[in-house]
Design a protein around this nucleic acid. Structure first.
Lengths: 216, 216
DNA sequence: GAAGCGCCATTGTGATCACAACGGAAACAT
DNA sequence: ATGTTTCCGTTGTGATCACAATGGCGCTTC
């Protein structure tokens, strides 16, 4: 019998560890757009050789989280306004569907968890903590969408988040206003009421609102 | 001045060449679901070492075109019915949007090209040529969506096609009926008439029709 | 005949190295 | 001062190798 020789939650593979840590940094806005990376630099930072670093970079590049110049140089993407609009439209399409699918499965415990996460979002906004804001905002959305039981769709949504990570970094770095997350409250209210059209509108508004700030 | 030392359309990089050829084979249904691949086998087939083969495989795995077992074994994905339903829903969401964005830019030359491609689709169906059918069907959709000028959305749509490639292979391999592509004609008619709601419905129907056949 | 067991060829992983191309800066010329 | 050229350090690419884990196959046993 297979006595679980590998603890699935603690994968020791180097390339996977590098991938996950880099991905987290990019998605959460640690790296500004156009930031250059090198395979040897990544390898040194995570104490691995070039090989796993290359695999992690290649994987992230395939997801659009990193771009490679024609000569192979690695950097975070600098998105054009047209591409930002596209990604926002994709967020709206996919996340509205995910929210809609999560609605019938949303019970009280989930709504309370969202409430708690949203308090963290509010605190982050009040303290002008950009990193904490991005992280808790994504956690809010992911917690809701996990209930949709649609892993392929969720993966697509996360890919879009990943691509927008550096741009979000640049945005919230120069953002000074402190606004409470109004649309999150609408989302929670629609969930409580079981109001599907209202939920779709609230999610769409929340996603689109971010776009307006990104338009340069 | 830079005298274009590298012809961009003839990239000699080995890993990219392997990636493109494998991707094409997968998307066009050359490989059945669950088909196993090995790095050394790929390297031998394309006359490269394991390193470029690994990069190509890693990239395809990141796009969902290949799956890797916990021990790293490589194979084409065997999709569950739930995942097929998800992917079909994603196709509907994204492709309807792409078609809608292409509509205002669709001029007569494009419609005639679609007509020509659709004739090839019909011939493939009549001859029960599964490979030709999948290829020309994808070309039909891609030709339309290219007009949307939305590369990020098109990339997402192609990623979904890629994930469904092996499943389509299994489906059309055992499909015996010969049906003319009815919804393609509706799409062309809606394009001619500038009928946006009709176009959305036709694209959604065309995508969903495939799902019904895939449901086991 | 079927289930359990052990062995070994096969496979992915990661490190290292040689190499060619790129990019930036310094040096030069105008 | 500006534009050009040269040059070298840096970077990605691909090949090769050692290694550990895996999984299939044949053998054993009941």
């Amino acid at each position: 019998m297979n006595l679980n020789p590998r603890p699935l939650d603690a994968n020791p593979l180097a390339h996977d560890r590098v991938y996950r840590q880099l991905r987290s940094r990019i998605m959460h806005g640690d790296l500004p757009p156009g930031h250059a990376l090198t395979l040897r630099g990544i390898g040194k930072e995570y104490e691995v050789s070039m090989t796993p670093a290359r695999e992690a970079v290649r994987r992230l590049a395939a997801e659009g989280a990193l771009t490679m110049s024609t000569s192979g140089r690695i950097s975070t993407p600098e998105l054009s306004n047209e591409r930002i609009e596209e990604l926002a439209a994709l967020r709206a399409l996919i996340e509205v569907e995910l929210a809609s699918r999560a609605l019938p499965r949303a019970h009280m415990a989930l709504i309370e968890r969202l409430q708690t996460i949203n308090n963290t979002v509010s605190e982050a906004v009040a303290h002008r903590d950009a990193v904490s804001y991005i992280r808790s905002n994504l956690e809010f959305h992911r917690t809701l969408y996990l209930r949709a039981q649609a892993p392929a769709m969720l993966a697509m949504a996360e890919t879009v988040w990943l691509q927008m990570g550096p741009t979000m970094c640049a945005l919230y770095g120069r953002l000074r206003r402190t606004e409470p997350p109004h649309f999150h409250k609408l989302i929670i209210a629609a969930l409580r009421a079981g109001d599907e059209p209202g939920l779709r509108l609230a999610v769409r508004s929340d996603v689109t609102q971010g776009l307006r700030m990104l338009a340069t």
